[in-house]
Amino acid sequence: MQQSSSSPSSGIDVRYVAKLARLALDDAEAERYAVDLAALFAHVDELAGLPTDDVAATAQVIAGENVMRADQRQPGLARDVFLAGAPDTQLGMVRVPRILAEAE
């Protein structure tokens, strides 16, 4: 099951994946992660050898039911406490770059 582990030819487009992950990569990083991901997925591909046709997926092991709390108002974080951790604020709000320009 152990395939050659460092061939970057397994077809993972690291730039595309990084775009999905909203992560800027420089050229050296892109090259390195292409190798790393190809190696990791070569190991992971051994899972294909495990028959799972009639097996249910497990999201987490402790069976449970959805939990609801009482529908009562509870205090949340105070605005100033929350904003103290934000990188840029203005007039009691988080300040962000405009987002509509791209869609024009």
């Binding site: 909203r22 800027a24 934000a86 990188p87 988080v94 770059p97 987002i99 320009a101 791209e102």
Partner: peptide, 17 residues
Amino acid sequence: IRYGLRVAGDDVGDLYE
């Protein structure tokens, strides 16, 4: 956006990345 480090970008996507 909401907490921790922020590096300025040309637009919001660039800021995220």
